[in-house]
Design a protein around this nucleic acid. Sequence first.
DNA 1: CTTATAGTTGACTAGTTGGTCAAATAATAT
DNA 2: ATATTATTTGACCAACTAGTCAACTATAAG
Lengths: 208, 208
Amino acid sequence: MGRTSTAKEKLITSAIELMGNRSYNAVGVQEICDHSGVKKGSFYHFFPSKRDLTLEAIDTMWGKFKEQMLDPIFNSDIKAFEKFNVLMNKSYEYQSAAKECTGCVTGCGMGNLALELSTQDEIIRQKIEQIFEEWAQYFEDVIVDAVNEGDLSVDTDPRSTAQAILAYMEGVSLMGKTFNDPTMLSRLGEGMIQLCISKKNISLEDNM
Amino acid sequence: MGRTSTAKEKLITSAIELMGNRSYNAVGVQEICDHSGVKKGSFYHFFPSKRDLTLEAIDTMWGKFKEQMLDPIFNSDIKAFEKFNVLMNKSYEYQSAAKECTGCVTGCGMGNLALELSTQDEIIRQKIEQIFEEWAQYFEDVIVDAVNEGDLSVDTDPRSTAQAILAYMEGVSLMGKTFNDPTMLSRLGEGMIQLCISKKNISLEDNM
DNA sequence: CTTATAGTTGACTAGTTGGTCAAATAATAT
DNA sequence: ATATTATTTGACCAACTAGTCAACTATAAG
């Protein structure tokens, strides 16, 4: 009953775009409203607060990221290690496009919000923690497969390795943003595979 | 001539502490003044803007970090790889103390500002880029030494490897902050060594 | 002891922040 | 056609933002 509206979706879309290019605290409710052509009164009809809009925006971001990036790659049957390379490559393409379009490497929207808000808003921190957990699970599954297929040592700790890879991806994104240089992503991409190799697989003895 | 003052130093110290625990945009000039017991009029006597204070705060942060962390470790004569482990361990201790004290893993102050401000303030981005360059140089020197001493393959790309290690450190800090869990730093610390090993040194053939 | 100068103070902008609300409006289900 | 309900609107608020400034004060150097 009553009328229908696309205002809520427009607000979320604008929030993702604006906060993605700048930051949570640098983007005000008014600017989000202006950008989406929605009046502030409507904003607070749909969201009790800026934080609530942000929580929904994070959900939407994560949903799209899974749908457009993670699922296509991790449901495909390419070789385990290759999946990481493809992901890093897609990220490179994404950041290159961002720089073309806005002049700036924007980095990972999730990591950006995580660093900005983790000490400021416990609810948002927990939400992103949960998403990182889910994200690492994609990696962990692949690592377990690789161990089972004999491509990785049985000494591999899948959970820590998955977290290490996620950490590395986030770190590379941070560097790319700081240097405003998307090629950072492709150049440092190789490191991800190295993080998979259990220490015992490395022939350190040969060199040390 | 005229009177002397410690206000400038106090403002910088407060800015580092407050922005370190929260963020640039979340901390106002007024709060920095209250925290340091300096009146706002004095703030603008010493700094033309909040950004200028921040630029000096970044310099001070970096100076202390070099003096207290990097120089002691990288000027010592412990083994190359061990230096990375010591650094990661010190970071773990630092984040543990931060959590004890404030309840929050605060992450890397430099990385925090980098992600928040790189797309917002080009001057600050450039300053942090330059610091990251200097920081990676510490790593690169060690890697070159390790190559010369035969501890690392001659195939190693010292610059990219150094950047990869810095990226990983920043990524691990980001994860630690997002999970509000300092043990993340110690648990994922091992990965740094793996990033040093040139692909050709890895006996992938054994497993693949 | 004076004078030049560096630092301090508090009151003051003008603009923005997140958020509120009552009244108007449009559409839907009956 | 009507009653119900969802949405829209714009005016409004108090608190806060970065930044200004003229008057005041302390001191270091001559």
